[in-house]
Amino acid sequence: MTSWTLSMPSLSQPMPSFVSIELFAIVVGTACTVGALVPDMSAATATAVLRSLGETAQREPTRVRDRVWGALACIGASAAALATRGVSLPALATWLLCLSLLIAADIDRRHHLLPDAVTLPLLWLGLLVNLGNHVAPLPDAVIGAVGGYLGLRILSLVVVAITQSDGIGHGDFKLLAAIGAWLGWQALPPVAFIAAALVVLVGLVRNARSNAAAPSRVAFGPALAVAATVVLFVPSLCHA
């Protein structure tokens, strides 16, 4: 797809020469440290938002397992950004997007909440980054932001009308809008498809394990975050 400013390198291509072993080690170490703090960042954000809404928010102790997963996710995003974009502003932007998606996914996983304090800055940052076409051309980013919000909102209205349920949360609308602002409108179909498939799969696995009569509620934010990360690093999915 010509609107992407970067294509994935082939596996035979070596890492850019200006990415030295020392620099790579610094980046990985920084990513590991930041990733280990993701549970604390998401917990602090969720607590502040819930308290502002007048709800009681008890902060649970952070498990070592959560820190390990956060560190591994950040290390993977850093390595992928360096491998595909080298040492550059687009690489830094890519890593910031992955970090923001990780925080949003962790909050939604724990609290079924996607606060404006996370989604709206992420949306505007995506448009700002794409002023220089660093991830997607600005017109595609603007259309992606509008299309992501309206598309999921319309789908939610249809779901509510058919099932008489609560539908999709407003935070999910804004998160998909932010993803569209970063990746462009072409990324919306594969992101939505992958996210929906993940939600269905997780729901089936949970219900099979619990043997519950009623289906359990599955947060959509983590699925959107995973789908956006996949499309970010495999842009060929946008024209598959």
Rank of each mutant, 00 (worst) to 15 (best):
R63E: 10
V64Y: 08
R65Q: 15
R65M: 13
R67V: 02
V68W: 12
V68D: 07
A71T: 10
C74W: 00
A77V: 01
A77K: 01
A80Q: 02
A81T: 07
L82F: 04
L82Y: 04
A83E: 12
A83R: 15
R85A: 14
G86F: 05
G86M: 07
S88N: 03
P90C: 09
P90F: 12
P90N: 12
P90V: 10
A91F: 12
A91V: 09
L92F: 14
L92N: 09
A93H: 10
A93S: 13
W95D: 04
W95G: 11
W95S: 12
L96M: 15
L96Q: 13
L96V: 08
L96N: 08
L97W: 06
L97H: 08
L97A: 11
L102S: 12
I103L: 13
I103H: 10
A104F: 03
I107N: 05
H111P: 01
L113A: 02
L114A: 09
L114N: 00
P115R: 04
T119C: 06
T119F: 04
L120T: 12
P121G: 06
L122Q: 03
L123I: 02
L125T: 14
L125A: 14
L125Y: 02
G126C: 10
G126W: 08
L127C: 11
L128S: 09
L128I: 14
V129I: 15
N130E: 07
N130I: 06
N130C: 08
L131C: 15
L131S: 13
N133P: 03
N133H: 15
H134N: 12
H134C: 07
V135Y: 02
V135W: 09
A136E: 12
A136P: 07
L138E: 14
P139M: 14
D140H: 15
V142F: 14
I143P: 07
G144N: 10
A145Q: 10
V146L: 15
G147I: 02
G147E: 05
G147T: 08
G147D: 06
Y149S: 03
Y149G: 02
L150M: 14
L152C: 01
R153A: 11
R153P: 00
R153N: 02
L155C: 06
L155T: 05
S156C: 03
V158N: 02
V159Y: 07
A161V: 09
